[in-house]
Design a protein around this nucleic acid. Structure first.
Lengths: 208, 208
DNA sequence: GTTTGTGAATGAGTTCACAGCA
DNA sequence: TGCTGTGAACTCATTCACAAAC
């Protein structure tokens, strides 16, 4: 995991929210925004907004606020969202297919440019724009597309193998939807999303 | 949000992991397990395991460890996972359809027992076992099924409306996949999963 | 007067370390 | 000796509060 200084991960996550909020503010015709107005729309305190931004520099002017357009561009560059990031997905089952067709990634700057599976039944079928390819082609396709993000949507037992293939193919970030830890070289950053886990957290708070 | 004393949410989340780990240990024929062995499989420190469990009682015996079967049952009851939890899903688009068909919920104790949409094109179609119904039927179906969990898989603009309908129908927990905050009465517990957000966090750490 | 940037105080969660029971 | 349960120490993020800039 190639981390910069000591920026809380939670702070990075909020920056993405600010980025979206700034776009809204600009649509509303605002040229300057304050930490209070950003915070209100983002659902965090003004202090938190200023503290988060202060990790990366001094972007505001006391008594005035932040230039919305300038700050938006700063944040986009910080978050590497100033260009479309190419992602590849392995696993064309129900979840994988849905992720490949999910319309929520593109407006946020991510494109799932290739989908892979081992099942010959699935290879060759189309998911929206992209055709499912055999996973053997992963390395060459990653190179050709200049992709840096891999998404794992295979069953639990296969996820470690896929993660290793992704790391070997040169991907630097992995989003894993299988409910298991995966081990990869330090230089690769992994996040796991366990959908059932979220339900488990909710269940704990249920009454009765 | 009906929270008990002061149990960290992160601790609750880990308990679910311990529950899975205990099942594995039992399959391996182990009758007693130590905090060290649980921790190793779960990827957390033995101290953390003991601290987490200590929030809910004293389950172990010094010098011996924990009775795997007994602890598993304790955890299942604590997490309300000692019975199948019924969930309903609103939004039969690409993501919603996938969640309805996703095979990862059932083994963890959750069943998506009904799916709803407003689109007449979708109402009546089948997703795996369940037929898509019109969202107007939500209240009566929630009552009939005894469901307590709602899953939101509709576009951003519709999520607040759906959340309110879920709260009105008596659901006590909501898992929201739309990338927006939803406001509901205090008695309803909400968690949001923003899939693009996870990619944004990864993008920040990308080299270059 | 308004709003930023930041050191200091607070708070929450994790790790440490050890007393006590098997 | 082995392992649990837990107060104490520590770490890290958030909140506070204020001096400096506009």
């Amino acid at each position: 995991m190639s981390s910069n200084p000591a920026i809380p991960d939670t702070a990075v996550s909020r920056l993405a929210t600010y980025l979206r909020v700034l776009t809204e503010s600009q649509r509303d015709g605002r040229q300057y925004v304050s930490s209070a107005s950003i915070g209100e729309r983002a659902g965090v305190s003004p202090d938190q907004v200023r503290k988060d931004l202060s990790h990366f520099g001094e972007f505001g002017r006391p008594g005035v606020g932040y230039d919305a357009d300038q700050l938006r561009r700063h944040l986009a560059r910080i978050l590497r969202l100033d260009r479309v990031q190419m992602a590849v997905l392995v696993g064309a089952g129900s979840l994988g297919s849905a992720l490949a067709r999910y319309s929520g990634f593109e407006p946020r700057g991510f494109r799932i440019a290739a989908v892979f599976d081992v099942d010959p039944e699935r290879v060759g079928t189309k998911l929206g724009e992209v055709a499912v390819e055999h996973v053997d082609r992963l390395p060459e396709r990653v190179r050709a597309l200049g992709a840096s993000i891999g998404i794992i949507a295979v069953p639990r037992v296969a996820c470690q193998r896929v993660a290793e293939a992704m790391a070997a193919a040169g991907l630097k970030a992995i989003l894993n939807f299988a409910p298991a830890k995966v081990e990869v070289p330090e230089s690769v950053n992994v996040r796991s999303v366990d959908l059932a886990r979220e339900l488990e957290r909710l269940a704990y708070h249920l009454p009765g």
